[in-house]
Design a protein around this nucleic acid. Structure first.
Lengths: 210, 210
DNA sequence: ATGCTTTTGATAGTGACTGTCATCTCTTAG
DNA sequence: CTAAGAGATGACAGTCACTATCAAAAGCAT
């Protein structure tokens, strides 16, 4: 919390905030720590990897590690919920119903990803599935996607964002989706077939009219 | 895991396992630790209370504390998901539909509780709502109630326990219920009006026929 | 270069949790 | 009633995530 922020971060719109020279190094450090952390986790396991090791691998001090990531699990869980996907959902063709719009957005998100991004996602997902502590962390933030989904549906349907039925519907959708993805054994399948899984939601969900 | 369990715990039926003398002391110690922990949490806050303090208050060593509770938060979260409620749900009058049966079971569970049990629940609930780490712990076990609910509905309807539609339905129900209870500000209301909240589920849920 | 801010590393904690081992206390066989 | 075995306890030492503090270093502007 700087006292006189002469040049703070731009309001975080869709466009890239014109990288400000010094901040590039920070982004690089952050990415480096994250990357080294994930590699180490994959090689030695999550619990077996200490923050000290990660810091050493990324060539920073442990102090610095904690300046970039508040907790060890943040290296895995950060950015997990992709706000972009919900933005795509909002912008999906109007004739799609909410569930179809979700499918559209998810499929499109996967299509946008490069192979290495997909690999990263899969690694991450495998970690989350296998390490209880990480699974815990994901669940803890379950409200975020519910919130985002509520909002996305509200915008699409021109309904108020605080419509209780919408929130209820979104909560049910996320809950159902959660059970669907967790039922899968292989992490790869759960991820790539996400679009298909969403299609099953309308078997049990029903959106009450405004 | 004793090598020769001459007298292990009975198969845990509904009836009370005839308490075996020494085990009574263990139960007492466990209850004591838990009670002291909750009181301290309420007085000084969760993070501000150390395991050492709890152990001291309960007059055991820190080592012993960890023999009874694997983690600090287990003192709060243990026994949170009440399997009995689901048992009551299974036994609810046949003419009730799944949602009505849930309401029936929840209301009955509250009715069974003594005042101090209710107080305990409310304290616990307030803690969970206010301490992020505890909330995390609850979310982590979200699968348990989904599982139990799936099973309860399956039994009531005479459908197979692994019916994917039922699991989906249960997941949606729990997800929706979660958002409903979290929307509330005052913990007391969220708990005691749980039965009423469940009634709203059928606004968005719909169980596909077998 | 000279000030200023921001980032960094070193250091010293705290507290949850683990593992080990000797002691002590029940329980049961004899 | 007692001895032996099993289980429970406490003391101790250690690991590791995470916090707080402070001085040195590096980026940036004038």
């Amino acid at each position: 919390m700087p006292s006189t922020p002469l040049r703070t971060d731009p309001p975080a719109h869709g466009a890239q905030p014109v990288t400000g020279l010094r901040e590039r190094k920070k982004a690089k450090t952050r990415a480096s720590i994250r990357s080294h952390a994930l590699h180490l986790f994959k090689e030695q396991g999550y619990a077996e990897t200490t923050v000290e090791q990660i810091a050493a691998a990324a060539e920073v001090s442990p102090s610095t590690f904690f300046r970039y990531f508040a907790t060890k699990d943040e290296t895995v869980l950060d950015d997990l919920i992709d706000a972009d996907t919900f933005r795509i959902m909002v912008a999906a063709p109007v004739e799609l119903n909410p569930i179809e719009a979700m499918q559209y957005a998810v499929n499109r998100t996967f299509a946008r990803m490069t192979d290495e991004m997909l690999d990263l996602e899969i690694t991450r997902n495998a970690l989350i599935q296998s390490v209880p502590e990480l699974r815990k962390g994901v669940m803890a933030e379950i409200n975020r996607p519910i919130e985002l989904l509520t909002e996305a549906i509200a915008i699409r349907l021109g309904r108020p964002t605080d419509d209780p039925d919408l929130r209820l519907y979104a909560g049910a959708a996320v809950g159902a989706l959660m059970t669907l993805t967790q039922a899968r054994d292989e992490p790869r399948a759960a991820m790539t077939s996400l679009g298909e899984l969403i299609g099953r939601l309308d078997r049990v969900l029903h959106l009450p009219p405004a």
